[in-house]
Nucleic acid binder design. Structure first.
Lengths: 340, 340
DNA sequence: CCAGTGATGGACGTTTTATGTCCCGGGTAT
DNA sequence: ATACCCGGGACATAAAACGTCCATCACTGG
């Protein structure tokens, strides 16, 4: 596979460029749904005319369709994009990145999508697609799947589709309420995922910042206890990874804790735990749900995060060593490899 | 390996041609040892100038060397050729098929799409796409285009798009109603094609199995006469090819006729005529429209059919010798070559 | 020794193709 | 109703490809 491309490169040096160009046009149209020529041209940084040439070609090949409202991808175009993914990864050099990260951190699979989530909303969507695909790959019938919150997780939820293998699975939030906006809370994500896949879900309604005694009575509650048990016996965890300080701010952590996080060198956050550069846990959010020790019994831990700015944070979570699968983007992957 | 080339064929069809061209240049030089530009050009059937462009490129890539005595292949060029062999075999299996069929049956163009229409719906769609592309290539402004019915023709109609070169053209059914389901009748196909391309159409409402006198009065009708005249003066014919017995059954031909077809060795059916293995007409459907002798005045006859099971039938229609362009699939093409 | 042959590489005008730029008529969402 | 965005047509221009001719060089055969 790789050889064939190397051979072709010798005989057709610009093959890769054209292939990438056409791929990215098609891909852009795929993620945009319906889009016009001018919009597309500016978003791809091409002149209108040359884009038009390519679009005419792609139309002739039956890979996209156009009507008065704009252009959209055809079924065979969508299929083509799917089939092309491995080729594109090689052409973009992403396979190398995937393999080196997997080896450096002892992961069983790494998926790298092209682009940078920090700068392109399309990359974020692609990350969601890839995350959903990864989950689909590892899930089995009757699994309990614990998920966290965050915008990346929301994207994954968006890209899940109904599938027989996920029908009847349980989606649960990995931890209790962690004071984020509603549509990115773990509870919300779990319910969306369940609806999209035809699965079931249970919610954990445990507010933050409870007094000790209120907390104790709450976790004695049989209803809550049941959900917590389910969470702790999950087979799959899918979680985002965040920058420690950004997450602390977003969750309105009090000044004292923030200071202590800073002095402890907290760099990354994942499922309510804060990690320093070496991958040590330096702080945990006071709420119920999945504990670190539960992860060891968990069969598949899937981390999903992207963006150049998150690279270092992802690296420190990976160093902690509980992850099995990582889904990230090109920019973050490059940063991760700087911190081996 | 196979997939990557199929993908590239869809996304970069012209680059595949260039690859073939460069490969054959290199290969020719390899077998010739040392050879001059003009000699090579004539032996490859290229103009000197275009060969020179390619040679300059190959020299730049270090794949061949040239001195005052002529050109010869370099070591890395020889290595490349060796590595390419499997790629070339796969990538151009179809091209070879196309050329051998074209030569064997004296056609001006043969288009072979990968796959087998019998087993894959996708191949059938691809056949439709290729048929539409072929029609687009040969059509000119103001043409009258006669079409037949059938599911393959319906696919072609589906894949036609509005285009200025076809605007205002006439689509007519090649022959009268031949007792098939409505959405595959020539009348229907003609009207769909006209709508899709922005052309106009005329229909032929002549039922099958008319009594002789009803038939005579019908074809005296000026309206019908006008359409029949248009059909017979068409410049382009696009038609499907069917297995004789399958078609007879589908058209509910009576038992007597079926027996006579069988005893005459009818193998194939096209535009209402039945052909035996040698390409002789052994029977014709009793309806009005295009006659065989009209085909000689027709400039472009495009036959479209695929599927392993139809290979022999296609071959016998080709042997009749009126076809100019054939669009088929890989499985049928292989069968066709077995019957040269 | 020399003319003839066939080679490469340079040159140049012409044709074809690609590109930048505008505009038009038609839908669509506001 | 209107303003906006869409695809597609049109056209001048820049760039690439091509056909053609020629100069020069190396080798060969006489």
């Amino acid at each position: 596979m790789r050889e064939i491309l190397d051979i072709q490169k010798k005989l057709l040096p610009d093959l890769m460029d054209i292939m990438k160009k056409r791929y990215s046009i098609l891909h852009h149209i795929l993620v945009s749904g319906v889009v016009g020529r001018r919009t597309l041209a500016s978003s791809l940084d091409m002149t209108e005319r040359v884009l038009r040439g390519e679009v005419d070609f792609l139309k002739e090949q039956g890979l996209l369709e156009s009507d008065a409202s704009g252009m959209k991808i055809s079924e065979s175009g969508r299929q083509l994009l799917e089939d092309m993914l491995p080729i594109i990864k090689i052409a973009f050099g992403l396979t190398d990145l995937e393999e080196s990260i997997a080896k450096a951190y002892g992961l069983s699979q790494v998926i790298v999508v092209p682009g940078d989530t920090d700068t392109s909303v399309f990359t974020k969507k692609e990350l969601g697609r890839a995350g959903a695909a990864a989950l689909r790959k590892y899930v089995a019938k009757g699994d309990i799947i614990a998920v966290t919150g965050g915008s990346t997780m929301a994207q994954i939820a968006n890209n899940l589709t109904i599938s027989s293998s996920m029908k009847g699975n349980w989606f649960v939030p990995a931890r209790g309420g962690l004071g984020e906006s509603v549509d990115m809370q773990a509870n919300t994500i779990a319910s969306i995922m369940a609806k999209k896949t035809g699965g079931k879900y249970r919610l954990l309604h445990v507010p933050d910042h409870l007094g000790e005694e209120a907390y104790q009575t709450l976790i004695q509650d049989p209803q809550i206890q049941e959900v917590v048990d389910a969470v702790r016996s999950c087979r799959i965890v899918v979680h985002g990874i965040g920058d420690a300080m950004v997450m602390a701010r977003r969750r309105k952590v009090d000044a004292d804790t923030t200071r202590s996080l800073q002095s402890d060198g907290a760099l990354a956050e994942a499922f309510g735990y804060y990690f320093d550069r070496q991958g040590n846990v330096v702080h945990k959010m006071p709420t119920v749900g999945l504990r670190l020790e539960d992860l060891q019994r968990t069969e598949v831990v899937i981390g999903v995060a992207g963006g150049k700015s998150k690279g270092e944070a992802i690296a420190s979570v990976l160093r902690h060593g509980q992850e099995d699968v990582l889904v990230t983007d090109e920019a973050a992957a490059i940063e991760i490899m700087k911190h081996v």
